[in-house]
Amino acid sequence: MKAFKELAIIIGICLFGEISAQLLPFPFPSSVLSMLILLALFFTPLLKPESIEGVSSLMLGNMVLFFIPSGVQIIKYASVMKDSWWKLVLICLISMVLTFFVTGFSVILTIKLIKGGKKNGNN
C-alpha cells in the first residue's frame, strides 16, 4: 500500500507539473518543472522526501531502464539519417567530450578562485 501511495503522490505532482507547463508563456518541459515543484515542496511542511522514498529510490537506482524505448526508435529514423549518420554520431561525440571538459574545468577553476579569494580576504 505504501508504494502505491508514494506512486500516487509522484504522479499527482507530475500531472500538476504538466498543467503548470501549459500555463507558462514559453515552452518548458513538464518533467523539469515537476522536479522544481517537488524540490520546492520539500522546503515546505507539506511533503518530506521520506514520503516518496521507496518508489523514488527504485526509479533513481534503475533510471537507465526508462531510456531504453527512446533509443530503440533509432530503427525508425535509420532512413532519415541515410549517409550522414556517421557525421552526426561523430559531431555528437566530439561536442559531448568538449562540453564535458569545459564544464568540469571551469567548475574546478571557479572553486579555486573562490577559495583563493577567501584566503586573501582573511589575510
Binding site: 504538466e18 515543484i37 516518496i52 522514498e53 523514488s56 533513481l60 526508462f66
Partner: peptide, 16 residues
C-alpha cells in the same frame, strides 16, 4: 515505460 520518464526526472529533486 517512456511515459514514466516524467516521474523519473521529477524525483531527481530528492538527490538535489
Amino acid at each position: 515505460i517512456t511515459s514514466c520518464l516524467g516521474p523519473v526526472t521529477a524525483v531527481l529533486a530528492i538527490s538535489i
